[in-house]
Amino acid sequence: MHARTEAPAEAAPSWTGEIFSILQRFDVRQVPYVPDAGHSDLIKRVLASSTMRGIPLTTEEEGVALLVGAWAGGQRGALLMQSSGVGNCINMLSLTQIFRFPFLTLVTMRGEWGEFNPWQVPMGSSTQAIFELSGIKVLRASHPVEVSEVVEAAAGQAYNALTPTAVLLSQRLIGAKVFVK
């Protein structure tokens, strides 16, 4: 067995703070998530926030159902997950059509752009198509400078036009995870 050491922690990228500010401005209150390394800084900010409630899930589909209840009760939410989690959500994604509620999810991509782990590739390759087949609009951010305008547009159309939207935060943006022996 190889002992695993994480690559040295880098400073959190500035775009995660920009995402947090946008969620705050849109009055997002419930933020369900299954952790992903690419979301770790945003999750920290959410858990430290006094207006947002970070809600750890056991599986991502729980988050889709949670956001229905939140909206029925008058609160906006956003689901944080990695691309593999999208596969866990598929049946629950029907709820975006059944209830036409403001669904926003921010998905950190794996399985692309220099991926090391083959197990991430199949779901990463079908993530966008699954959303589109499920009637969910997909916007993508691949460079730090475009993150805030993409997330802003996604939040705008999700909350103002009840258009279910997924933002794919590409692996190029986040950086391929480094596995060191």
């Binding site: 209150r29 419930q30 409630r53 809600i55 589909e61 729980e62 988050g63 889709v64 159902a65 949670l66 956001l67 229905v68 209840g69 939140a70 909206w71 029925a72 009760g73 008058g74 609160q75 939410g77 629950m92 709820l95």
Partner: peptide, 13 residues
């Protein structure tokens, strides 16, 4: 499988 989670989102809101 989603009923309890809808209840949770509502209960928190």
């Amino acid at each position: 499988g989603g009923a309890v989670m809808m209840g949770l989102g509502m209960a928190l809101a």
